[in-house]
Design a protein around this nucleic acid. Structure first.
Lengths: 160, 160
DNA sequence: CAGTATCCCCCCTGATACTG
DNA sequence: CAGTATCAGGGGGGATACTG
């Protein structure tokens, strides 16, 4: 009894997303994958995660189509773990988390890192939500509606 | 032995963020808080979460400064749970997750919801990472550097 | 190096019952 | 309604040993 509730079929994209990457380790693995980490031991030493845990998380992420295995790029007998298209789609999630962490989870004077635009080498990249005509949207400006729903129904971001 | 590793002091903003909201429920609670949910039972019925779990998660989120309690707005003896400044900072995280879930976790033809700009009532809001001069950054365009670090050191998104 | 296997503890998680 | 208390199961999570 008391089986863990699956969010995979929830009628909310946020819930479905959390069903896939809503745990302590998955997004850290994905963050490292964005950094170019591909090998088991590199994930393991970088994260300080137990090998069994790492193997389980990698297996799940592959199973859910976020990562894929391919023959090792260096010709060894082992596998590389690389982001799929679906996995690369998580880029903005990682950036958003990073931005929040930088802005809200450090003490004054503590060491921190920052996203930079490699073209300009300018440390200024900033994640923003914009409407199509270019103005920045804040929390109060955005709501959720069902696709195709007419503007009459005034639900506030229901999406349940 | 084998104590759970805390990520709270990790030297990576993503890890710190996950230490706070890296679990199955926190971001769903926060999503509902953005929707205007403030009461215990509203969270509970909306999420289908066990009461004990919900109480624990709410307590943690308050403890970590994401939510705050205040006297109930309707004058009852109970408390409301509202987002703090820090909590509101998670808006883009929720939006990013939503966007990813919408784009990658639904079958064709399945029902889905969408973010809209309430000013225009246009269902087109899109999260993007832009450099300060306005061009959209993709994964390959962004790296992480330590604050103040000169452009010499060519680490790819180290941030460890 | 890249895992698998095993052990084991703790805590996450849900269910139910109880209180004011 | 808004929780707290308690229970029970399973799996997260780490450590270590083992295999190819």
């Amino acid at each position: 009894m008391a089986k863990r509730i699956s969010l995979a079929e929830a009628d909310c994209p946020v819930a479905r997303a959390l069903d896939v990457i809503g745990d302590r380790w998955s997004l850290l693995i994905i963050r490292d994958a964005f950094d170019g980490v591909r090998r088991f031991s590199d994930f393991q030493s970088g994260l300080g995660i137990a090998k069994g845990m790492l193997a389980a998380r990698l297996r799940d992420l592959v199973e859910r189509g976020v990562l894929a295995t391919e023959p090792a790029s260096d010709g060894s007998v082992y596998r590389d773990y690389v982001l799929t298209e679906r996995g690369r789609g998580l880029f903005l999630v990682v950036v958003a988390l990073r931005q929040w962490g930088e802005g809200h989870l450090y003490q004054k004077g503590e060491h921190r890192s920052r996203l930079v635009d490699t073209a300009k080498n300018a440390p200024v990249a900033q994640l923003e939500l914009r409407s199509r005509d270019g103005h920045v949207l804040r929390w109060n400006d955005a709501r959720v509606q069902k696709v195709g729903e007419k503007s009459g129904a005034r639900k506030r971001k229901a999406a349940r």
